[in-house]
């Protein structure tokens, strides 16, 4: 038996919004540690990894590890039936083929129960080594979203150059070129507005904007985004979900031929 309850459906709705354009199907792994998901997009260029820790739930019961195979589009559609303020319970029997989603209004006057058919999915899982990165940039998530969107008007790729004290995001295309320089904040009152740039060694890498724009669908989950970059390894774009976990995206770089 698996059963968990979150005080606000909003966070799970936003998480589904962050995933559904990138992946069509996925498996939620349920264990005593919480819910987790890892899936590559169909082209095997990017990967999303979600962790929602037990401690962030109101209640969490998992008698036995289970895998819930879901169609993301279906799950997102059902989640949209919840109001943001509703509390939400997810429930599944150990060998069941249904996931129950129960939404309860804050005043307790309305309870909606949906049952979603689960799928038997065999999804490739990749081993992602823990590693130190050459550079880590933290910046307002809305600013990163804006940069990715704006540079998409110029080209298909963004070149990210990190040096001490700042980052250049640049794009080239048939119509022209663009360069956006973001400087590390010297003094900020609000942590959410801060830009921090940690540099162990400067890096310069190129990534497809198409995928970065998919990743920025997670913007409503967190005021800040972190970009971890090292030469010749996938970029990590991470959004922390307060008190609950994270959504992390990995994107393989483009290499000069």
């Amino acid at each position: 038996m698996f059963e968990c309850r979150l005080p606000k459906a909003e966070v799970l709705k936003k998480t589904m919004d962050a995933l559904k354009d990138l992946i069509k199907e996925a498996v939620w792994d349920v264990s005593a540690q919480g819910l987790s998901l890892q899936s590559m997009d169909s082209s095997h260029v990017s990967l999303v990894q979600v962790t929602l820790r037990t401690e962030g739930f109101d209640t969490f019961r998992c008698d036995k590890n289970i895998a819930l195979g879901v169609n993301m589009d279906t799950m997102q559609k059902l989640m949209k039936c919840a109001s943001n303020d509703d509390n939400i319970t997810l429930k599944s029997e150990d060998n069941g083929d249904l996931l129950s989603l129960i939404f309860e209004s804050p005043n307790g006057e309305k309870t909606s129960e949906y049952e979603m058919k689960l799928m038997d999915l065999d999804i490739e899982q990749l081993g992602i080594p823990d590693q130190e990165y050459s550079c880590t940039i933290k910046m307002p998530s809305g600013e990163f979203q804006r940069i990715c969107r704006d540079l998409s008007n110029i080209g298909e790729s963004v070149n990210i150059t990190v040096v001490k004290g700042g980052v250049d995001f640049s794009a080239k295309g048939d119509i022209g070129n663009a360069k956006i320089h973001v400087t590390e904040s010297s003094n900020v009152d609000n942590e959410k507005d801060a830009v921090t740039v940690e540099v162990n060694e400067p890096v310069n890498l190129t990534f497809a904007l198409r995928y970065l724009n998919f990743f920025t669908k997670a913007t409503p989950l967190s005021g800040q985004v972190s970009l971890s970059i090292s030469p010749d390894v996938p970029l990590v774009v991470a959004y922390e979900i307060e008190d609950l976990g994270h959504v992390k995206y990995f994107l393989a770089p483009k290499i000069e031929n």
Binding site: L126, P234, N257
Partner: peptide, 14 residues
């Protein structure tokens, strides 16, 4: 021309 790498180039299947 920049060529898109795949994730299998960096991570292996578990």
């Amino acid at each position: 021309i920049a060529c898109q790498q795949g994730l299998f180039h960096y991570f292996s299947e578990t």
